[in-house]
Amino acid sequence: MAHDAGTDTPAAASGEGVRRRDFINIAAVSAAGVGGIATLYPLISQMAPSADVLAESSTEVDISAIQPGQAIKAVFRKQPVFIRNLKPEEIKAAEEVDVTTLRDPQTLKERTKAGKENWLITMGVCTHLGCVPLGSGEGEVKGEFGGYFCPCHGSVYDTAARIRKGPAPKNLQVPDYEFTSDTVVKIG
């Protein structure tokens, strides 16, 4: 900037004068840059989840009515979540599997809370391409491993909601949750 200005002026006064000038011009351009970047921030930030969306980022579910062997579908962050009360034989079936043979090796204990091993809480979103697997509702197909079955591309999950067969790469995801009492679980 100052360089171009200098070409138009016959004899720049002294070396020091030129340096002071350059400094002010550079400072002014830098300030304009800072201002420009500052205005970018709200323009980018507005695309992040808004306050009403964030307010629904955790869900409390009453689980007192779920009998052993039953499951319910709840909603967490606008997506289905499966809450399943496992029967003792389902727990047993899950624990008998040799973990090392699994595609995504995890034990049932790692996927549940200590002392609450009968409560299997997972996202109802198939890890293959995002369909909702069957098996949580009364009378739905549970697949050959007694867990969940995704009809889109035939992924089969066992009673710990681990992937056993089909194209899905991972077990059904376990969201963050905690029991706020014996009958209420807070997801998220």
Binding site: S45, Q46, A48, S50
Partner: peptide, 10 residues
């Protein structure tokens, strides 16, 4: 105006 991040300013 209320919930979108910086929405009031925009």
């Amino acid at each position: 105006m209320r919930d979108v991040n910086w929405g009031w300013m925009l």
